[in-house]
Amino acid sequence: MMYQCGSCGGVYQDLMADGSLYFHACPPLEVDPRGRVVERPDKRNENLVMGEPGEAPRMKAEGRGRVELEPGWQPPAPAAEPRGLLARAWERIRASVTTG
């Protein structure tokens, strides 16, 4: 099944083709190469933590839950961005450099 995370909007399958389960975790709000990570406050993390002996394992963080997507769901096409005169000129210059 395909799901969309209610916290980060990411789309994922919970079952891989080889029969393994997939456990989604939301990406951070910010991260830099030095290792500074700012997690989102409503982060969803489906990876499991073990409870007391005899207790069932539980999800690390529920976040805002997830929504099951209809079969054949496709992401919406990105909105066309307004392209000003400068942007169009820049693209023409870049294209001429690439093709030589």
Partner: peptide, 19 residues
């Protein structure tokens, strides 16, 4: 072979080694 999460625009890819 794993197909990870398709992040929403503006987000990084984050994949966690499962428990």
């Amino acid at each position: 072979v794993i197909v990870g999460t398709d992040p929403a625009p503006g987000n990084q890819i984050t994949e966690t080694v499962p428990t």
